[in-house]
Design a binder for these strands. Structure first.
Lengths: 205, 205
DNA sequence: TAGATTGTTAATCGATTAACAATC
DNA sequence: TAGATTGTTAATCGATTAACAATC
């Protein structure tokens, strides 16, 4: 919680550490060295030791890291072991695909409802879908802490304002509008940025 | 083409420059300064000038940048004005959502076919979908340069090998397996990494 | 104890910002 | 010409890597 200023570079690597360690844990491997992790992740061992040390000394000289212990610690650090309540706004193609297929719980969230302006009391993959007119009342009552935003970009600012008002702490943003706001954590998933970057890199091949 | 080693940090910002400039062009704005762009993008003006200068002096002292000209140059640099032929493997939920909704052409690609092991001669949103058994023959004949990969992760390595063999230059990777291979450009879109990062950042709020 | 491997400091490398001369 | 704003160099800041003493 009160870790002193971890750099965003480190934070972005945490999920990769977690997943690799989790795989080892599932495979019943009990210990691992930074050098082994380095091989699996194509990072340097030095970087891995330095990154993990931002959060405490999880390893042991001459031994390495205990897999089960490190796995638990990373779950704690990321905060993905709590099933934080989340909602989704906009049940179009991408929204629906996420509800149907994405394992929210694995990444730390419990999807408790979806909303759309065109829907009245439906459900997708056991997630209840309500009309957008119910949104504020639902938030007040159920206090979700995160919202997935899969709506047209012209509606983004309206929803961001509403999220902040109701103390939603984070937004997983699939619109093409960047969200950058000190009052709410945002992850901007931008397909066209990603694909344009690929286009550039293809040229260089 | 032969630009001298542009850093990945710069390359990742190019799409954002392009989109902002494109919007100005569409709005019939003819000139823009680095300071104005800085305001729109929440970058520093200095960074913007330095980034753009990696590719040449597009601006003019005392004037700023000509929007239409810069827009064209950025299209050229990114290479998004060519409609590079692309295919998609795996027409599950996310694959289908992309075919139905994503504007490939806007990001530089023309989606010419989709493939799936469970499908025989179908089509989605006017894109023909073939059985995966047809894949190699199709590639040989139509020479796509990019592949969207939306298959289960245990099939990733098989397809990467096949892409390289047939000189596909880039892969837009939606599986949970990271692709990092000197023989093919890869953009790894990883939903759970993104969401775990958001989970971490929510805790800090 | 000897070997292994961490934690951590110092050195290097890269990216960002500041500053200003050049020039439109 | 005077004002504006770029292109570019130098300074700062941050992130990565190397090295090794500490220690299990």
């Amino acid at each position: 919680m009160m870790e002193k200023n971890i750099s965003t570079a480190v934070i972005k690597r945490l999920p990769r550490y977690y997943k690799t360690i989790k795989e080892l844990a599932v495979a019943n491997i009990t210990r691992v060295s930074s050098a082994e992790l380095a091989g699996r992740l194509s990072f340097t061992a030095s970087k891995i030791r330095q990154d993990l040390n931002c959060f405490g000394g999880f390893g042991q000289q001459g031994y390495g890291y205990n897999v089960a212990y490190l796995c638990n610690e990373l779950e704690e650090i990321l905060g993905i072991n709590k099933g934080i309540p989340a909602i989704l706004i906009g049940t179009g193609n991408i929204g629906t695909a996420l509800i149907n297929n994405f394992d929210f719980l694995y990444s730390g969230f419990k999807l408790i409802a979806g909303f759309d302006i065109r829907v009245f009391n439906d459900n997708i993959n056991n997630v209840p879908i309500y009309n957008a007119s119910e949104l504020e009342r639902f938030i007040e009552k159920n206090k979700p802490k995160m919202a997935v935003l899969t709506v047209p970009r012209n509606q983004v600012q309206k929803y961001v304002k509403l999220f902040i008002k109701h103390e939603i702490k984070g937004v997983w943003n699939f619109t093409n509008e960047y969200i950058q706001n000190p009052d709410i954590a945002a992850e901007n998933v931008n397909f066209s940025d990603s694909l344009m970057t690929l286009c550039y890199n293809i040229k260089e091949k």
